[in-house]
Structure formats: structure tokens, C-alpha cells
Amino acid sequence: MSCGKPHETDCSEVLDHLYEYLDQEMPEADRKKLAEHFDECSPCLEKYGLEQAVKKLVKRCCGRDEVPTDLRSKVMGRIDLIRSGETRPERAVFDGAPAAQGAQAAAPAPGEDAEPGGPSASARRNAR
């Protein structure tokens, strides 16, 4: 996304670091650069406002839920993989099991639905 105008800080760079800005997880000098960009760039400012509203909504709706202590590191690890261009981790992010490969990835576990909302394997066998 870009407004088409030249900026000291490119729109894509601003949007790549939007959540760091929202969460105040960046050096003050970088925060100032992004704040200046938002002052000049209405599309980025609009995106900032939308993401800020979503963040507040999530906090209001889910703010009381207990979060596993290692969840942040797992989520950040997955974000790093995606940013580096790797679309699939070598192992599952949340359960520590290796990521499924090939045809096994498409096959549901016994008793599970092949598709969300679809009939279970046992229901399909019974229908025959």
C-alpha cells in the first residue's frame, strides 16, 4: 500500500512495523519516524487506526483469558518464519509435533472430519 507520494520512510516499511509501533516495542527514534509518516500519509494513518481499533476490541473481548506462558514466543517465531518467506514451519508451532508432509497432511485423523462441517470418517463408513 502506498499513497503514491515520496516519504522518508516507505509505506511498506511502516506497515511491516505497525504492531511494534502499536505495542510500543520499538526504539523512540523509530516511533518518531513512524509518527511523522502517519502525519503525512492518510492511507497508512487509516490502516493504523483500523489496527488500533481491532487491538482494542480483542483486548476488551479476550483480555481476561489466561494465555499460556510460551504462546508469545511461539507466535513471534511463526511471524519470523512468515517474514523470512518460509510459509510452513519444519515442525508444528503449537504442539511440538513435526509438520505433516505430502499426502499425510491432507488425510484427517481417524474420527475427524475431512472438511470442517463435513461428515466424519465413521459417518461416511456407516453411509456405505
Rank of each mutant, 00 (worst) to 15 (best):
A123N: 01
P108C: 05
L15N: 11
A97M: 13
G4I: 14
V14N: 06
I79W: 04
Y21P: 00
A105C: 08
C3V: 11
K59Q: 05
K59N: 07
E46L: 10
P108R: 06
C44I: 12
A92W: 01
L18M: 13
C62E: 06
A121I: 09
G102Q: 03
F38V: 04
V67R: 01
S2K: 06
H7Q: 10
I79M: 02
M76Y: 01
N126I: 00
R128H: 02
Y48W: 13
G118D: 07
R124T: 01
M26I: 07
V54D: 14
L34F: 14
H17D: 08
A109N: 07
A97E: 15
A53C: 00
G4T: 15
E66Q: 10
E36F: 02
D23F: 04
A121S: 12
S73G: 00
P116V: 15
C44D: 09
T87R: 15
S120R: 15
C61A: 11
R88Q: 14
C3I: 08
A103S: 02
P110F: 01
E36T: 05
A35F: 00
R88W: 14
M1H: 13
S120D: 05
D30W: 10
G4V: 15
D95E: 07
D70F: 00
G111P: 03
D16S: 04
E40L: 06
P98G: 04
S84N: 04
K33E: 09
G49S: 09
C41A: 05
D95G: 05
D16I: 03
E13K: 11
V75T: 06
D23P: 00
E28W: 07
P6C: 09
A97F: 08
R72L: 01
E115F: 14
R31I: 01
H37R: 14
I82W: 04
G49H: 13
D23H: 08
Q52Y: 09
A100G: 11
L50F: 10
N126P: 03
E112F: 08
E115K: 05
E13Y: 09
A105Y: 13
T69V: 02
E112G: 05
K47H: 12
G63A: 07
A92S: 15
E46A: 14
L57Q: 15
A127L: 06
A100C: 14
